[in-house]
Design a protein around this nucleic acid. Sequence first.
DNA 1: ATTTAAACTTTGTAATTCAAAGTACTTTTA
DNA 2: TAAAAGTACTTTGAATTACAAAGTTTAAAT
Lengths: 98, 98
Amino acid sequence: MKSYIHNLNKAFENRIRLGIMSVLMVNDSVDFSTMKETLELTDGNLASHITALEKEGYIHVKKEFVGKKPLTTYSVTKLGMKAFNDHLDALEKLLKGR
Amino acid sequence: MKSYIHNLNKAFENRIRLGIMSVLMVNDSVDFSTMKETLELTDGNLASHITALEKEGYIHVKKEFVGKKPLTTYSVTKLGMKAFNDHLDALEKLLKGR
DNA sequence: ATTTAAACTTTGTAATTCAAAGTACTTTTA
DNA sequence: TAAAAGTACTTTGAATTACAAAGTTTAAAT
């Protein structure tokens, strides 16, 4: 009866990155401000966790101008979906004691 | 649509402490060696995470001699059960996007 | 000219994590 | 009886992570 803790993804251990992924799994794309308010984070904190997930290839960052204002939007990649689902599987198995 | 990430319990963010709690939620008591092997940890690493959970009052540590050998067994406290269930609730709500 | 807004980046400190080594006591083995 | 092994840690130290606060950039609005 080995444990599943080592199948958990380190990238999703942090609550903020877990939150970002959760939000992106149910929303096609979310912009910087919305994400910041949803998760109640400071600018810098959000930016750094976003960078971490982007480096793993789990999210895509799109920068554009809408009207005259810059707009940054995030979306989850296929790799990110796979990784997140695998993480949730491991989590579920761990919590169910198998 | 506020996020639930701030209802997650910091004590259970780490995979090892999450593993310890999961094991103790489905087993009345588990000894040091069994826990160590189940979670595939080094002595020191297990000991330090156990201490962290004990300090929070989430687990109880019992030391005794069985035959001539020392035996340390762990069990979850009522407070620990409550805290862990609250954490799982927050996790579930977060992941379901509510 | 100053302020505001969006989205960061940088800085610095504090906390966390973990392996490895060391400790203490006891028992078994050579 | 001396050495090795077992149980359960504690300590040390280095690396990584986390986070707030402050600074930066570009452009628009006042």
